[in-house]
Computed example of a mutant assay.
Amino acid sequence: MSQDPWAALEARRQRRHWRAWPWGWAALLLSIGAWACTFMLMVLVMASFGMPGDGSHAMQATAPYLYATLALGGATLLGGLVASVLAIRLRRQAVGGGAALALMALLLAVLLVPALL
């Protein structure tokens, strides 16, 4: 390690290059992606209903897609939450981060409130 303070400052700046990323826009895109996954889950659930007397063939055919979409939706929701917190704390498009938090809160309210009633 060098004793030069300018070299140490440059090394520190290079280590933290992720702080300059546009976290607000990333959070907004991830929250919109979570809404898209929710819409796709709705389409897959509607497609899994078969004719009465058909058995569970339609549900078995769409089950892997349901699980994959559910996992992708959970990952985008978690990633959007992390990105929005980073956007607000690092002051990188904080408005986008706040809008993403609002969209994710609305999504959770739409999904959880009918289940609680």
Rank of each mutant, 00 (worst) to 15 (best):
Y65I: 03
M51A: 12
D4R: 03
Y65H: 13
M40E: 13
T76S: 12
A99V: 15
L90F: 14
L41H: 06
T76M: 14
M104P: 00
E10R: 06
M51V: 11
L30E: 04
A20C: 03
A105R: 00
R12K: 09
P22E: 10
A87N: 07
V110T: 06
S31Q: 05
M42N: 02
R19A: 09
L101I: 14
A63I: 15
L44P: 09
G53I: 03
A83S: 06
P64R: 01
G50K: 10
F39N: 01
L101G: 14
Q14N: 15
L9R: 15
R91G: 02
V45Q: 12
L103V: 14
F49T: 11
A11T: 15
L30Q: 13
V110Y: 03
G96I: 05
M1Q: 05
P22C: 10
T38F: 08
W18C: 00
L81G: 15
A34V: 03
L116G: 11
P114R: 04
A71I: 15
W35F: 13
L86Y: 06
G73I: 11
S48A: 09
G73H: 07
P5Q: 10
G50P: 11
R89F: 02
P5R: 13
W25Y: 06
M51W: 09
A75W: 08
G33F: 02
R12P: 15
W35N: 05
P64A: 00
R92I: 04
P5Y: 05
W23H: 10
A109G: 00
F39H: 01
D54C: 14
W23L: 02
W6T: 09
W6A: 05
L101F: 11
R15F: 04
A83M: 02
A94N: 01
S84V: 05
L29A: 08
G33Y: 01
A75F: 08
R13V: 03
G73C: 12
G97L: 02
G98A: 14
D54Q: 11
G55W: 04
S48K: 00
G74V: 13
M42V: 11
W18Q: 12
Q60G: 08
L41Y: 07
G74P: 00
P114I: 05
A47Q: 12
A47W: 05
A63T: 15
L90N: 12
G74A: 13
G53A: 00
A102G: 03
L66T: 05
V110I: 07
A87P: 04
H17L: 03
G33S: 13
G79L: 05
A87V: 08
L29K: 04
M46K: 04
P64L: 01
F49K: 01
L72Y: 02
A8Q: 07
A75E: 01
V110R: 15
G74S: 15
L66H: 09
G80M: 00
L9Y: 08
P52A: 13
L103H: 08
M46D: 02
A100Q: 06
L106H: 01
A100C: 05
R12C: 07
A20Y: 11
R16S: 08
L86A: 13
A109T: 14
W18Y: 14
L41M: 11
G98N: 12
L103D: 06
L66K: 05
T76W: 07
A34G: 08
G53Q: 02
V43N: 09
L28W: 10
E10A: 13
M104T: 10
A83W: 01
A99C: 12
V45L: 09
M46I: 09
W6H: 14
C37V: 12
M1R: 02
W18K: 07
